[in-house]
Design a protein around this nucleic acid. Sequence first.
DNA 1: CCCCCTGGGCTAACAGTGTTAGCTACGGAT
DNA 2: ATCCGTAGCTAACACTGTTAGCCCAGGGGG
Lengths: 205, 205
Amino acid sequence: MSAAGGAPTPVSALAPALPLPRTAPRPEPPVRSPRATEIVEAAQRLLETEGAESLTMRRLGEVLGIRAPSLYKHLPGKPAVETALIETALWGIGDALHRVVDAAGPGDVVGRLLAEYRRFALARPNLYRLVAADPIGRADLTPGLEGWSGEPFYRATAEPYVAQALWAAAHGTVTLELSDRFLPGSDLDRTWAALARAFTAHAGD
Amino acid sequence: MSAAGGAPTPVSALAPALPLPRTAPRPEPPVRSPRATEIVEAAQRLLETEGAESLTMRRLGEVLGIRAPSLYKHLPGKPAVETALIETALWGIGDALHRVVDAAGPGDVVGRLLAEYRRFALARPNLYRLVAADPIGRADLTPGLEGWSGEPFYRATAEPYVAQALWAAAHGTVTLELSDRFLPGSDLDRTWAALARAFTAHAGD
DNA sequence: CCCCCTGGGCTAACAGTGTTAGCTACGGAT
DNA sequence: ATCCGTAGCTAACACTGTTAGCCCAGGGGG
């Protein structure tokens, strides 16, 4: 991800930019062989239905009617599978968030952005957890993808560092909600509302 | 962790509470045998100096001049080691944050709280990453520890849901900073400043 | 003094992980 | 008809956490 816009956006821009412009174009998905695509799709199904600890090369081969070592004829290894899954997640989040900002009705873009971010993650908990799991082979990710998928936060806040903070806050909140780390009995709707309020209330300062 | 105070604090309290009260007492650390304590300390050193992937039972035994299976005479397994490390981290964070709130000079408690949270995590990156790594054997944690260690956020905001949101935001930002997930070239000081501003500016609304 | 028993080490082993090497069968191109 | 790449296979390696079972030193009770 990484909010704060793509390459052409100068980081120091305190921009007015009310029409919520797009700056970075949607990056091109990488070309994969048909079989490799099948494998990645099977991996996604496996991850969502059985959880991360079931996403093993042997198990993945099994659901494909294949032995584990044969997977290496199509993909270089397990990190590649995970990277592919992370990428589909980033494309999904990016598309969903850009859509929200595109349909910018009158007020509270931030609130709707946060709601959509939350909705997406809760709908695919295991996928989001995978994205959140630290290391992420930055170098192997499609260039520009992280920036593009975080860009809606910039479009909504029009200030790069507020955008980064908002993105990080959303990420943290959703992570904790997925891990069930908030005090039991908390009304998470109100937590999200408090977060939206913090980033909305004081438009000019 | 988990902000929003301990048991006696009614969640609905929109409290005035300006003297920044403490609600939950500091929980008692669990009693461990001397040898078990040695092992946990060695694990912490190992984690910080060599990283999470080196924190293996065989390697841990090695630095203690012991074979891996012997560790099981003192601790029930690797999850127990990790839980112990997580607990020391939570105690550390809790102590540091409570100290900040105790020394409450005039303004910007939130800013100083965030700064301390960040400082702590960056000083022990691998330890913090371990805490952030999802599953956390909630049941095996010292009761009340999570609530107590997040309580300073409540003391600083005096509203449980704002506290949760602030804590989550801090967690997310520090996680992304540790994983180097922000756009390269970003001035993270400004991101943190933007976060503090969001949770400070509008005191009353 | 001897016995017993417990604490804390050991080796061997198991099941599981990602991954590599080397073999083989099929299918399309020359 | 021959070649060769594609895509499967088995065997194996090095690693993980973990269990079973053995063994030896030290201390207390008869």
